[in-house]
Design a protein around this nucleic acid. Structure first.
Lengths: 205, 205
DNA sequence: GCAAGTATTGAAACAGTATTCATTACTTGA
DNA sequence: TCAAGTAATGAATACTGTTTCAATACTTGC
């Protein structure tokens, strides 16, 4: 029954969202789903098989939300800002799950899944950057590299706060700061506007 | 004998540098150091105790090198660039060890050590940024946040290349790209020079 | 050369989980 | 109601390394 399969996935995700991956052993998943341990193995080859899917589903929701934030008719810098804010805001809402997706130590196999998870983020930013370069609003540069660095920067900035107890009063400043960082990382506007007026970029090319 | 202790640390680090943490079981460490497995436990409480120290020592060398790169009488943006280049260049040289320090999945206890490892890097960048703000060469902003994001950006950018076979011909572009990203992340020069001439920053404060 | 103390050995014990599988309980079509 | 087939159980097992410890070999002071 496909319903049982879903309930296993839901149970596993709920456990991760509550206490992290460390909290999600197979007996615990089974208990949460009101089934026996052994039954899980009729639906999933192995534990990493199961959690690969758990992480992929959770990641996909995040990525969809960011893709939606990117899908607006605004200048590239605004779109980068929107995506960064969406990423950060949602992570701070789903703290434990976000932490598990971003940083919690897990098995090597699942860690591979986590690396995949960052690629769609990178691609969202990279697409915006390429568009910005085409329009002349962002200087020529390696879009993939900068997009990767932006994703890393956001993640690193969030890991600290996510690993500590929530501090709601600081969240808004954090989100703004992260977004600001991302826009800055795009570099100054194309050469005509900035470099002629004192923006120091002599070492960049 | 303190010499035995050293040889254990050296053996453990050598194994990590050759095949990653996964390659460094206690019997392997003992074999490499030409002692018995049990003896390690007269010098170290536990495996994570041992590897905490291995990682700390290795990290300290990297941090010292970056601190030295930061310790020059140059404008803040140049200093950021130097540190970033040093970080990236050294990581690409000591690939396997750098990967273990930056990203390889390890035990939860050792992972904590890895988080500590990034703090000194953050502090190096944060100090430069504060100095730059004081001098008016960098716009007012949360120095710790930006420094954290920069470290995350560098790390994320390196993880991919470090996890794949070396491609020496691309390394120089990678190092330059990373450094460029870091300088950009500092934002435009203070308001008087840039914002009056078209650099878009309206959403930043 | 002999104790007393210290370093070293390595095989065996242990721990924590994932995984299996013989058994039992359902479900369904005739 | 009864088979035949499928879902489900959960205690036993397998596995993967770390950690222990009784036994042994050194070292050093007397």
């Amino acid at each position: 029954m496909a319903q049982t399969r879903e309930s296993i996935l839901d149970a596993a995700e709920a456990l991760v969202a509550e206490g992290g991956y460390a909290n999600a052993g197979m007996p615990a998943v089974a208990g949460r789903a009101n089934i026996s341990t052994g039954l899980i193995y009729r639906y999933f080859e192995s534990k990493s098989d199961l959690f690969d899917e758990v992480f992929r589903r959770a990641a996909q929701r995040e990525i969809d939300a960011c893709a939606a934030a990117a899908d607006v008719d605004l200048p590239p810098r605004d779109r980068v800002q929107r995506v960064a804010e969406t990423f950060a805001r949602r992570a701070l809402k789903g703290r434990q799950l976000a932490y598990a997706l971003l940083a919690e130590p897990v098995d090597a196999t699942i860690d591979a899944e986590r690396l995949h998870f960052r690629i769609p983020y990178r691609d969202i930013f990279a697409a915006i950057i390429r568009d910005g370069i085409k329009r002349g609003e962002i200087a020529e540069q390696d879009a993939d590299l900068v997009a990767t660095a932006i994703v890393g920067g956001i993640a690193e900035t969030l890991v600290g706060p996510l690993s500590r107890p929530p501090e709601p009063e600081r969240e808004s400043a954090l989100i703004q700061g992260v977004a600001r960082f991302c826009v800055h990382a795009l570099g100054p506007v194309a050469a005509d506007a900035a470099s002629a007026h004192g923006f120091q970029e002599k070492r960049d090319e």
